[in-house]
Design a protein around this nucleic acid. Structure first.
Lengths: 228, 228
DNA sequence: GAATAAAAAATTGTATACAAAAATGCATGA
DNA sequence: TCATGCATTTTTGTATACAATTTTTTATTC
């Protein structure tokens, strides 16, 4: 039995759009995590998932292993799968970790900003960040921020940064951070980001990295304080 | 048929040491990649792998999906699995990417070096790096370097850095870098690292990061030149 | 009533069968 | 010689059956 008891039997039919049932199930589970249908620590019982999506257990097991490789799911022998759970401390660690990675994307992307053709997309995306901020929607805000860095990493030209940042678990954990942002720090957060954004557009990679780095330090200081 | 034709039928028996056959197969394949039994781009046919390890196709498929999640294996619908192939450019991207991540580990670990009890392990590990250097063994050298950073990341206290750096694909790709280090740059490489190592021990995180970062820049400059 | 043990149910792990798709080999024709 | 199409073989994708393990329930004892 799944711990989350009864919104069961939704019985989505696996369409032929997905290349295979495994991919279909992987997408479905990630989507479920993103939209709160699956919560942290929730157990995923292969048979239930199979029934839910009208497939057999085989592709579900394969999907679960793939997600375990991604770090979204935790797999314990003979005990099955559950959505990986992150403590507040671990989320802070993750924040430190992932934002530090972004520095590389920021540096590389900024140094390519001499080409004004590249400005349009990130300016457009930054407006979405501003919009989410105006609405004080933490989820949208973090999501927009995530996409902003996706674009930056694309521009960076480093295939690995892009590859890495697109991994489901990065996205999954990034979105978990939304719960972490305390309301009274939002104003400073967006102010910092406006500055970073402007500096990125200026093409001054060195300054952009310094600003981004000190923003990270600032965030970490305040996160830690807020959670003690 | 596996492309690598006939050292087949080695028929390792799955021992009960591994928690499950999936784990066993995952370990076996990673081991195979590490030791050159599987080469880049090599196709992995589920039935062959199953026969090789005396298991059925089910756990092999699950293992393959797990490794795909890790990024070690590339999985294409209806075409099966192959060991992920990296071009020289992609390896350079990866080097840039992964070394940049190490900066975080270096910074956090260095700032904990006031505690002399922590010195012993990394000093010991650095001797292994020196040893591999003395023997001019690229594989051992990169391996020792990898372990050195593993230890650093452990010390860092950031669970995520550790989690991330231990992922098979990080190790897998890191080892691929060995092929990339050109002989005439080795002396400078080890000189840089000696300096970094000393600075880490000193506990001066700021300096350690600067040194490490400039080392990265230096490596990337020389790698790029060497491969054009 | 709480603790323990045994039985039952649920769930995972593995093997196998069969269908669908892709790759291969071979014959045929230009 | 080379390309093309068809039949064969190989390989993947999925479902299902059964064994092994864990969890839950029930019964029993103190």
């Amino acid at each position: 039995m799944t711990e989350k008891p009864e919104d069961k039997q939704q019985n989505e039919t696996p369409p032929q759009t997905a290349a295979s049932l495994v991919d279909f199930v992987v997408d479905a589970i990630i989507d479920g995590v993103m939209h709160g249908r699956y919560v942290q620590g929730q157990r995923l019982i292969a048979a239930d998932v199979a029934e839910e999506y009208n497939v057999s257990r085989a592709p579900v097991r394969e999907a679960l292993h793939m997600l375990a490789g991604e770090g979204v799911v935790e797999l314990i022998a003979n005990k099955g799968a559950r959505i990986r759970r992150l403590s507040v401390d671990e989320r802070i660690d993750f924040l430190e970790f992932t934002e530090a990675m972004c520095v590389l994307g920021v540096r590389l992307a900024t140094s390519k900003m001499r080409d004004p053709a590249l400005h349009a997309t990130i300016i457009e995306q930054f407006e979405k960040i501003e919009d989410a901020f105006a609405r004080r929607n933490a989820s949208d805000f973090v999501n927009a921020l995530y996409t902003y860095h996706i674009i930056l990493n694309e521009i960076s030209g480093n295939g690995f940064v892009e590859f890495f940042y697109r991994r489901p678990y990065i996205r999954f954990y990034t979105l978990l951070l939304a719960e972490l942002v305390p309301g009274n720090h939002w104003d400073q957060y967006i102010l910092n980001y406006r500055l970073i954004h402007e500096t990125i557009l200026s093409g001054d990679a060195h300054s952009a990295v310094i600003m981004f780095t000190s923003h990270i330090r600032w965030v970490l200081r305040n996160m830690r304080i807020d959670n003690e």
